[in-house]
Design a protein around this nucleic acid. Structure first.
Lengths: 251, 251
DNA sequence: ACAACATGTTGCATAATACGCAACACAATC
DNA sequence: GATTGTGTTGCGTATTATGCAACATGTTGT
């Protein structure tokens, strides 16, 4: 259903453009005539999914989007529940705590809590990270059976840094290692000089999974000993896992 | 662009159904073949706007919806700013404070803060109220020029109670009265036995408008004197209006 | 345990409709 | 005041969305 796919692409474009979109933008990026772009946006606006500012003529997110998102948050209510625990985690480790969910072959960052260290590394909620390079991505992918992994990635794995895994085989090996180890590591595979540790948690009843990670610049860890961070993260897993019924942590 | 309009209708249906949707639901309510409904939802899911639970096959909101909503909240950041002030308002008046925005001829409730009175009247955020019957609706409509009002309503005004205005002329009269008075009143026009007072606020730079209201059951106001509530609401308007640059309150 | 039913997902031919072109309206820019 | 950029209509054609049927799978009932 191509016209709907185009409409969704336009919405993705809106997100990437920072929430505002003009008819011309859609026309250019989707390579359709301005007339088509105009009608497309008008149709989306008709139902309130997006709204047109009567002054600037620009389109922005509408109330229907907010109502839809509310449904998402009802399903992923662990995200809200995790907030306080994340603050404790960031306090303990002094580094940024992240929360993300899997979307295809990408991790979408939903929350970040900054640590007390003067230099912190974080992105704004809403950003997408390549799953094969991010610690949260590996943690979430490791929940899936190997057979499902190749279907998520089309084409070669994008290289973020020199350390990024670039073959599916490497990734699968890393995932089985992650399963054994109990947590995932990204050692400068996403950002140079930044390391991250992550665990994944699944709410038993709803089957929804999130990843929690702690990231830190290498120079902030003088002795290179990240065991305290790993311990804090595993403790988080036991506390929070017990609460949401993830039995991988309670036994 | 009919197929897109159908897709948006499906999303509205999802909101009304409490965030979950099956192919059959869409097929029935939109009166299309199951095959069409299936393809429609699959297309929406392809871009991540919605997601299909692999187990139940049910469709729910996707991450793209969350990202879109984030853009909305960035635009309507007064909503977040209003939170604390609303809490104060609910404390002062002892009744429920509401925050809503206009969407066509309806008010969408975005926040409610309950008062201290044992019996409270409130709906969940996300609910839509008929603008011509709700105090918030009248307050927001009164910002628009009379000429724009008829275009928002198609067909007769739906009657919520016996007090509901049922002609456009009555509504326009009421709106000009609201403009003079400075605040809007709904006296059992939406719910029997419930009265509400509301003001509208506009953020100068972004041009976004919200309504704040206080609602109370009639029996909770023994002497029928609602002046304290009006005063509290007007004080709210002066405080908050000054902060967001709404000059109707600062002079 | 098997039938009867409901529900979700594919191929295929036809009818619906989305598309580009062009023209117009309106601002913004020079 | 001419020029450029942008958003929104009519209109004919070609794309594509649709219902039908069949299949796959899951659910209910006896």
């Amino acid at each position: 259903m191509k016209s709907i796919e185009k409409a969704v692409s336009a919405l993705q474009l809106m997100v990437e453009s920072g929430g505002e979109l003009r008819v011309g933008d859609v026309s250019r990026h989707l390579k359709v005539n301005r007339s088509t772009a105009s009608r497309l946006l008008a149709s989306l606006a008709g139902g309130g999914l997006i709204e047109q500012d009567p002054l600037t003529q620009r389109y922005g997110a509408g109330i229907l989007a907010v109502q839809l998102a509310a449904g998402f948050h009802r399903k992923f209510d662990i995200v809200e529940q995790a907030q306080r625990e994340m603050e404790a985690l960031a306090r303990e480790t002094q580094h940024t705590a992240w929360l993300g969910v899997l979307s295809g072959a990408e991790v979408v960052v939903l929350k970040t809590v900054r640590g007390s260290q003067p230099i912190q590394f974080a992105v704004e909620p809403g950003h997408r990270l390549p799953a094969h390079a991010a610690a949260m991505g590996k943690a979430l992918l490791s929940l899936k059976p190997d057979a499902e992994i190749p279907g998520l990635f089309e084409g070669p794995l994008t290289a973020a840094t020199k350390q990024t895994l670039h073959s599916l085989d490497d990734l699968l090996r890393e995932l089985s290692l992650t399963r054994l180890r109990g947590y995932a590591i990204s050692d400068q595979e996403l950002f140079d000089g930044v390391k991250a540790i992550s665990i994944a948690l699944t709410e038993r009843h709803k089957g929804t999974s999130i990843a929690i990670s702690v990231s830190y610049p290498l120079f902030a860890l003088a002795d290179g000993n990240d065991q305290p961070i790993v311990d804090a993260l595993l403790a988080f897993g036991r506390r929070f896992g017990a609460r949401i019924g993830d039995d991988r942590w309670t036994r």
